[in-house]
């Protein structure tokens, strides 16, 4: 590989003229209109914007769930905007850890099995899977809840299982879509603190949110409006991140 598709810099995300058009009936929806964005390794970025701003579409492309109509996207140095579905699946598996608003855990599987899931698709043997999954569950403070199934866990605990699952493959990028949207403010704070800790240990994190106080936990905010970047700025250093 290598060659023209590889850019050897510290950027985890680099987009160039990233564009996405949908055909909805007779209309063409121009959801994302040429976004250029660079996110370096170790950054903690909040992508904000009202509904209809194109942030979900942008996130789907960043998360390799969707491919752009135009433009390029390099993830961790690899050009991924032209990959096939199955190649994208492998990129998601190895480079990205997802945290969703609705948790998206398998309800019938235990917390441990849920966390093991990405490792199964990575083809890792069962003993190693178990070890790594347990390690990440300990990390998020659920070492004593491994055998529980999602319906037996609280919302905050479920989201922490999801965080453990997102981290288990040691991804280049932790991508969270409204991670606190279904949580009360206290639990939301816990999850965001967890993110901050992870970021301090060097984890690159991108969260998509429409809540300003959540975005305050990040170090940088990127505001989307009508498919363009409207504002892109660093947060004031808060007193908690010393």
């Amino acid at each position: 590989m290598g060659g023209e598709g590889t850019v050897s810099d510290e950027a985890i995300i680099r987009t160039q003229g990233l564009t996405k058009h949908y055909v909805l009936g007779a209309e063409t929806v121009r959801a994302v209109r040429g976004v250029d964005l660079v996110i370096e390794r170790g950054e903690f970025v909040a992508i904000m914007g009202p509904s209809g701003s194109g942030k979900s579409t942008f996130m789907n492309m960043i998360g390799c769930l969707d491919t752009p109509t135009e433009g390029q996207y390099w993830l961790n140095g690899q050009l991924v905007s032209d990959l096939s579905d199955d190649q994208l699946a492998r990129v998601r598996n190895r480079q990205i850890g997802f945290v969703f608003q609705t948790f998206n855990l398998l309800p019938r599987a235990t917390a441990l099995h849920n966390v093991e899931l990405p490792l199964i698709y990575a083809g890792i043997g069962s003993r190693e899977r178990r070890r790594r999954a347990m390690e990440k569950l300990e990390l998020v403070g659920l070492g004593d809840r491994m055998g529980h199934k999602p319906p037996e866990l609280s919302g905050g605990q479920r989201q922490r299982v999801a965080v453990a699952r997102a981290l288990v493959n040691e991804p280049a990028l932790l991508l969270a879509d409204e991670p606190t949207g279904n949580l009360d403010s206290e639990t939301s704070g816990e999850i965001m603190n967890q993110f901050e800790q992870l970021n301090e240990q060097g984890q690159t994190i991108v969260i998509v949110t429409h809540e300003h106080d959540i975005a305050q936990h990040a170090r940088r905010q990127v505001h989307l409006h009508d498919g363009h970047i409207a504002r892109d700025f660093l947060n004031e250093v808060a007193e908690s991140t010393a």
Binding site: G63, L65, D85, D86, A89, R90, R92, N93, R94, F98, N104, L105, L106, L117, P118, Y121, A122, R165, N169
Partner: peptide, 10 residues
């Protein structure tokens, strides 16, 4: 959907 997001191929 979950399995695919987590890296399951077709």
């Amino acid at each position: 959907g979950i399995r695919k997001a987590l890296g399951a191929t077709r």
